[in-house]
Design a protein around this nucleic acid. Structure first.
Lengths: 256, 256
DNA sequence: ACCTGAACACCGTTCAAGT
DNA sequence: ACCTGAACACCGTTCAAGT
C-alpha cells in the first residue's frame, strides 16, 4: 500500500539496522550515524515518486516518512514546512527543464528549444506540475537560461527594452501553456472514470442553429493533437517576433 | 475572525430565529422553512468571498458553514464534495469572464476582447483562480464564446481546420497566461512578507561576466508592466494570425 | 427534503525527549 | 545535529437522527 519507492526499509527498525551495512569509509563514530541519512535531494526524489505514482493528494509527511523509512516529522528537519517543500519541488522541475540548455545555431531554434524543454519537463511530471503550479514563478528560469534566450533575441536584432519584453513573453507563455496542459492531462485522467468527458460529444452535437460557426468546425476540434497545438502556439510567437525583428533592423538602418 | 460575509446570522441559533422575519408571501407551513435557505448560488458567492478575503486555504466546509449560519456539513447537501464545489467555482469564474461577450466590428478586436475578459475575470479573483486552476479546462469556454471566436476566425479568412486550431490556441493561451499571472500575484503577495522578493535585486546585480546578455537588459526587466506584457502577448498572437490569414486568402484566390 | 451533531480517519506542525 | 513519539488543532466525509 505504501508503494515501496524508498531506498531504505519501510520501518524505523529497518532504518536503525541499516547502520550496520553502512559504508566503512563513512566511519560512523559508534554505531549511531553521525551524518543524517535523510537529505533534501533524497526527500525530493521520494516526493516526486509519490506524486507521480499515486497523485498529488498522496504527498503527505506521513506517506513521505513511510517511504523514507523515517518518522513522519523527520522531513521537517530539512524543510521548514510543506510550503517550503513545494517551492523546492518547483525549483527542481525547472532545473530539470533547463539542464544543459544551450544556444542553438539559429536564434529561432534557441527560443523553440526553451519552450519545448519547459513543456517536456512539465509533461514528464504532470502531477508534480499541478501541485507546484501556484508556486512556480519565472524566478525559476534561472540566470543561465535567461542569458541564453536574451542573447538570442539580441541576435535577432532587438534593442534592450524589446529584448527584455519578448524574453518575458516567451518564458511566461511557454511556462503557462505547459502547466495548463499538464493540469488538463490530470483532469481528463480523473474525469475518464466519471462521465465528465461527455462534453466532447456535446461539442459534436451542438445545435447548428444556435452555434453555426462552431458546428462548422466541430469535427476538426475533436482531433486536435496537443503537441501540434503547442508547436502551433510557439510557431505563431516566433513568426510574430521575426516580423518585428525585421522592422527593428530596418528602423535601425535609418537611425544608426 | 470569521469575517461575517454571510447574509444570515453567524450561528445556527440565529438561523433558526431568522424564520420569524421571513417574507410572508413565502408562506412557511408552520414555523419551519419548507424550502431550504441554502442554495448553490449562495454557497458559491460565500465561498468566493471567503477566498478573496482570507486566501485559498481559508476555504473549508467549517468556515463556509459559519459564514452561512449553518452546520459545517450542510454544504454537502448541495455539492457532492469539495472537488465538486471547486469545479463549480471554476465554471462560475468563466461564466463571469464571458458574461455578455459579443462579436466586435473587427475580428481582431473580437479575439482581443475574449483574451482581455479572461484576464480580467482571473485578476478580479486571483485567490479563486489559484484554487480552481487545476480544475479549469477549456470546457469552461462555453459554446456561446466558442461560436463567436470561431466566427471571427472564419471572417478573417481561415478554413475549418485552421479556424479550429487557432481558436484553441487563443483560448488556451489567454486562459493559461491569466491563471499564471494570478498565481504570480498571489505568490508575490505572500513573498512580500518574507524576503523572497530579493531575487529581483539579484537579477540587477547578476555578474556581467557570466551573464553578459542578461546584464545588458536587466534594467528593463525590472520595470515591465504586467498588463503591457499581456497585451504584448495577445498582440503577437493576432499579428501572426493576421499574417497567416493573408496567406490563406491569397491561396484561396488561386484555388477557389 | 433538508439540516444537525457526533464520530472517524486523516492532516501539518510543535515540542520535549532521546542518541 | 538529527531523529522519535506523543500531542494539538484542524480537515473532509459518513451516518443516524431530527424536523
Amino acid at each position: 500500500m505504501t508503494g515501496g519507492t524508498g531506498t531504505r526499509g519501510a520501518t524505523s527498525h529497518d532504518a536503525a539496522a541499516g547502520d550496520q551495512d553502512r559504508q566503512p569509509d563513512q566511519a560512523p563514530r559508534r554505531g549511531r550515524p553521525k551524518t543524517s541519512f535523510l537529505s533534501p535531494g533524497l526527500i525530493l526524489d521520494t516526493a516526486m515518486a509519490v506524486i507521480e505514482s499515486d497523485g498529488p493528494d498522496a504527498l503527505t509527511f506521513r506517506r513521505l516518512g513511510a517511504d523514507l523509512g523515517a518518522n513522519h516529522t523527520a522531513v521537517l528537519r530539512h524543510f521548514g514546512g510543506k510550503d517550503e517543500l513545494l517551492l523546492a519541488l518547483a525549483a527542481r522541475l525547472m532545473e530539470e527543464a533547463l539542464d544543459d540548455f544551450a544556444a542553438a545555431a539559429d536564434w529561432r531554434e534557441t527560443l523553440r528549444s526553451l519552450a519545448r524543454r519547459t513543456r517536456a519537463a512539465c509533461l514528464a511530471h504532470p502531477g508534480v506540475t499541478v501541485v507546484v503550479a501556484s508556486r512556480t514563478s519565472r524566478r525559476a528560469a534561472e540566470f543561465q537560461g535567461a542569458d541564453i534566450v536574451i542573447g538570442a533575441l539580441l541576435e535577432a536584432g532587438f534593442e534592450g527594452r524589446e529584448a527584455a519584453s519578448y524574453y518575458r513573453t516567451l518564458v511566461d507563455t511557454a511556462l503557462a501553456l505547459s502547466i495548463f496542459e499538464a493540469s488538463v492531462t490530470m483532469l481528463d485522467e480523473q474525469a475518464r472514470e466519471g462521465d465528465h468527458l461527455a462534453w466532447q460529444r456535446e461539442f459534436l452535437t451542438a445545435s447548428p442553429q444556435k452555434y453555426p460557426h462552431l458546428a462548422q468546425v466541430a469535427q476538426h476540434l475533436a482531433d486536435i493533437d496537443a503537441e501540434d497545438q503547442f508547436e502551433n502556439a510557439i510557431g505563431l510567437f516566433i513568426d510574430a517576433v521575426e516580423l518585428r525583428a525585421e522592422r527593428a533592423r530596418v528602423r535601425d538602418r535609418y537611425r544608426p
